[in-house]
Design a protein around this nucleic acid. Sequence first.
RNA 1: CGGUGAGUAGCGCAGCCUGGUAGCGCACCUGCCUUGGGAGCAGGGGGUCGCUGGUUCGAUUCCAGUCUCACCGACCA
Length: 576
Amino acid sequence: MRYSRYFIPTVKETPSDAEVVSHQLMLRAGMIRKLAAGIYNYLPLGLRSIRKFENIVREEMNRAEAIEMLMPGVQPAELWQESGRWTFYGKELLRFKDRKDAEFCMGPTHEEVITDMVRREIKSYRQMPVNFYQIQTKFRDEIRPRFGLMRGREFIMKDAYSFDVDSSAADSSYDRMYQAYMRIFTRCGLNFRAVEADTGSIGGSSSHEFMVLAESGEDAIVSCNACSYAANVEKAESAQLPVGTETGLLQLQEIATPEMKTIADVAAFLGVATETTVKTLVYAHENGEIVMALVRGDHELNEIKLKNHLGWDDIQMASEEQIRSCTGSPIGFLGPCDLKQKIKVIADNVLKNMVNVVIGANQKDLHFTNANCGRDFTVDIFTDIRSVVAGDPCPRCADGKLEMWRGIEVGHVFKLGTKYSKALSATYLDPDGKEQVIFMGCYGIGIGRTVAAAIEQNHDENGIIFPIPIAPFHCSLVAINNTKDAVVMAASEDICKQLENVGIEVLFDDRDERPGVKFKDNDLIGIPLRLVVGSKSLAEGKVELKIRATGEVHTLSISDAVSMIQQLVKGALERD
RNA sequence: CGGUGAGUAGCGCAGCCUGGUAGCGCACCUGCCUUGGGAGCAGGGGGUCGCUGGUUCGAUUCCAGUCUCACCGACCA
């Protein structure tokens, strides 16, 4: 490909509205341009990277015997009403009406559509296992699109859906996809972790997320430093903490704490550690149901755990009025003692071992010290409702500690069970002629997001450093002063042909630009290998090969350079 | 959805307070010069100042409305 005939609108200045490096660099490198909030044009260079990644995904899906198809972007409301998600999915689902006033939505995911197809076509146990996938544009009307392709509203996604006769067969399909995902991200040369995850709005029984590690990641994940346990913080189970030195129960005391509304205020005011306090939170369901949740003062409540424990489809902090009506207290002095109204009290497991705690007294400017569960207040249920923190003991092994990372979620695999097949009556006949419900799994990969994550993980002050498997070109060929120097030009054209003949994708920089401009642009757009042809070294039959990632430079004969490039590319593409 | 801020040339910005219909840097075009890390000189093209309405002899500037965008927040008792 000749640079002069191609289209790579690079930009020197960093766009002011781009926060994260991948977004800045994709704009500067001329890979993407914004059309509207969270909606982008994929320019030629960006598209090449995306296609590269898509093809890796496609190869691994095919290898895992998933079957490619394509579903529509626009979906009828009826299917979503049938699955119950028309109301459940919320504002992220972009809804609209056609000319006949019939309701539709832009597909944010395709469980309904695929299940509908399968229930019409799959009738026998003989037709399973089967796994359909597509690579397609989805739309989710995000609250706050940001970070370029990382959290767009319109985005390209690979989604796959497996259909099996029973739960254990579904488990095998799930494992197969899990392994395929491991291969995909390994082939791309990414530093990633597979972690246990919450299932969110997709639903289902269990799931893993594939996280590319990066400081700018929107998710917090933990992994054990001793065993293989790794999980999203939303999901990570907390282990019981070691019990402190045993002391007897002390006398309950009421203490004035004027204007001390936060845990930090109260602990500082009383001169105690926040670990000896209990934080009281009140949550409400949309339908008005209210619960009280207790966690240790220095811990954070995990709303997802609480929501899942309660089996609620919605959770929010209770309003000031709701809180007053059940506790009689203003916010800041809440506690489980002397409740005005009987409400369910859920406490974190850690509280089981705590004695003589500081807690709100349900009266303005008043707290209790030496409060004890069972004597001074009652707890209905102890369970795991806190978020784990770095250094917590591992929930799976004896002596591991949890480490914290930030990650970008690039893939997610779910065991769906029969959630959608039941709702949409997707059934089959087993060998005995009995009707059974199909077991499903679904498996997503954010295509654009993975490319962005790769950039997030692979860049320097000069620009992007693409891993070879997803680089838009394998190698750039920079001809110095080519518009004036016919020898250099002829040699460059020849080298370009030689490289292309052995399957190397070459970006031949034949522009009428000064060398500095070419070097800067080629660094910025992140082509992994760069071959420079200049008159001086060419006179000695040499060219210069520079490795973008390491900066190492090799001065080689043309034939050596071609074979080295060939080897480097081959080596990178065969990694798995 | 709440808070804050911003919309002036393709991009980044100034001008606006103290109304008199626009300017800088980069990019772009032409020429000369230069050619191993975003050169220099000279000349040039490009803007209904987000949109609608109001005040005024006159509005990019003042006022009202509206749209768009960005950032922050929505783990706090």
